[in-house]
Write a protein that binds this DNA or RNA. Structure first.
Lengths: 355, 355
DNA sequence: CTAGATATCCAAAACGTTTTGCACAACAGG
DNA sequence: CCTGTTGTGCAAAACGTTTTGGATATCTAG
């Protein structure tokens, strides 16, 4: 932030309650202390030595007037705002909330503010937020999984402004600062787990085809599972998991055919769980279900969901810390990739295949 | 935000890739178009009419140079930043995430940006964020349930800066803009529910005593329950719910004594659930458990948690919309209260008392 | 033909800082 | 007595906008 307070804001003295009073500026302080604005600035910043007696006088006036430097003017002069943006699709998704927390922590550590850019995957909204970086209101942006259209816009920005990709790689933007969980390994872990349980035919609920993380999960899974995999594309929302599974059940394509469902995120897995329950199928008795993300609800669900734990907090924190490392130096970050480890959490929603 | 883009950023022409190029300013545009900066400003803002031919020339230069107005300079001149803050203790708590989503939506609707101030109840951190408003980097603040120490600081600020209280009232700050769920009614609903099920002796897990919302929940509950209530103060975290119940179980003070547990939020209820399960007690067979908030995990838990649904999104949205109503007019908001309705969600964690 | 309106544009001030170059005094060493 | 140094403080420029009060030219109505 760099929006520190140099003193109290209280105004003592016989101040009458005027309608709206303009806050004290550095000139007001200078005048009241009988010095120049330059001197006030030096007293406050310590950039140059000031006679201790003078400094004391200035400080006292600062307190009396409740002077707080206008950070806008300061930023204008400095050429940076000490604020960055965090662009995510949905803050109410606990995965992104965790990621946001990590980002906020990292930003706060370095005295930076964080603007929450919640987009709902809405391209207009993303563009509007991306505008903040072009108008230089923010010093950089942590970009987590936006909508496909806005990614093209991103490309034009990436070489010119500090941007880091969190959680989600962007097609064609390999040359960037990236912090992501090891999606491929996650898929692999699930594949191995289900295979070890004897499953040989599974339904895979993927995310939108455009998202590389989802593709990586699918790839890792397919390779390790070494069985037959039916793929259906959802949208990472609970509803789509429900619909896709419900449809397949109706078509009779699921029971006695696929013995496991791997959803590319927990939300869709929950949808699947509901659809299966409604269809009278038991989990994990008839069918095993695996999710991805390990959001808080996963361990509390019934049955507790076997899923891949993603280090959401670390992803957000790492991406942000990396970004800031360059932002603070006024540099545009180079290409660099941080892949964070995932972990398979085996819970009650998976079981050996019933013969 | 008001950080709109007036044109593309691409720079065509034979521009050599210089190391760092200062972004084009309004003066650059003016010079290249052979007009004054004033005229460029008027073309872009439409504040005054400009000859169409001249305007076209200016616009073409704007595009060619990829000029985007510096929002900092604009804000400095305008005296406001079109950004507000949202101060919450923990974004990874789904209640606050929902609230944040509502706040972000409301802010975005009016073209405002939202700075996420995640405090972990840390007083220093809160102070630092509060500094942003004093340094006028943000035009206002939505304050949701901070730590007790920082609330005193708040008092000094409230009359001078636009601040709205969301979810949580602040002791001694009745004269303020407040949007909150009807905590008292929520407590009452729980009390009536448990009483109707035959319970006559309950354990109430409250939040920190300083939080009025928690007190309201407790009051509503105690009045409606009309039975014996044992109170224990937690801190709204899962761990405290676990500890408090585990302790009581160990002391033998729970089973066969209290037949119900009302936790002041879902997280503590989950902790209680875990402690009870570990103690070999069945819910709701031996003991009924009720939470508060209705976070997403509540319905997925096992057993599904009976709880009071709080309109978190609406609380955030209402508080923010209210605040902005005054911020946009440059006014400090008056006292005003919006109490939003709650709803009891009866699920599987409560049952008639076993005799 | 002239006074007033209209169209068009510009110069300068203002927003509130920080930074830089310089002035002046006092003081030390030679 | 001269010169270089140190201490102290100020004036002015710079950051990049928007707004305001004219200035100039052109047009219109009388």
């Amino acid at each position: 932030m760099t929006h520190e307070s140099y003193g109290a804001y209280e105004s003592h003295g016989p101040g009458r309650r005027s309608a709206v009073r303009r806050p004290a500026s550095i000139k007001d302080v200078a005048a009241a202390a009988g010095v120049s604005a330059t001197t006030v600035s030096h007293v406050l910043s310590g950039n140059r030595p000031v006679n201790e007696q003078t400094a004391a006088r200035v400080r006292s006036v600062v307190n009396r007037l409740g002077y707080v430097p206008a950070s806008l003017a300061r930023s204008l002069q400095a050429g940076s705002t000490s604020v960055i943006g965090l662009l995510i699709p949905d803050i109410s998704n606990t995965f992104f909330a965790e990621l946001a927390k990590g980002a906020e922590d990292a930003a706060h550590d370095l005295g930076y503010g964080l603007i929450l850019c919640n987009t709902e995957f809405d391209a207009d909204r993303e563009d509007r937020y991306l505008g903040m970086i072009r108008s230089r209101f923010i010093d950089g942006m942590v970009y987590a999984s936006g909508s496909p259209p806005s990614r093209r816009r991103l490309e034009a920005l990436m070489g010119k402004f500090p941007i880091a990709l969190a959680d989600e790689e962007v097609e064609g933007l390999e040359r960037a600062l990236i912090a992501t969980a090891d999606h491929e390994a996650g898929g692999r872990l699930v594949g191995e787990h289900l295979r070890a349980l004897g499953h040989r035919r599974a339904l895979m609920l993927t995310g939108p085809r455009a998202l590389k993380s989802g593709v990586a999960r699918a790839n890792g899974f397919v390779r390790a599972f070494r069985g037959e995999v039916v793929e259906r594309a959802g949208d990472f929302k609970e509803g789509s998991g429900y619909r896709l599974v419900a449809e397949l059940v109706q078509e009779g394509g699921l029971h006695g055919d696929c013995t496991a469902v791997f959803a590319a995120n927990d939300l869709m897995a929950f949808g699947a769980l509901t659809a299966l329950r409604e269809a009278g199928l038991s989990v994990p008795g008839d069918i095993s279900v695996v999710g991805f993300d390990d959001i808080r609800a996963a361990s509390l669900a019934h049955p507790p969901l076997t899923t891949v734990h993603q280090p959401a907090y670390d992803v957000g924190r790492t991406a942000t810390a990396q970004l800031l490392q360059y932002v603070t130096r006024g540099e545009v970050p180079p290409a660099s990739r941080h892949t964070l480890p995932v972990e398979l959490k085996v819970r009650g929603s998976t079981a050996p295949i019933a013969r």
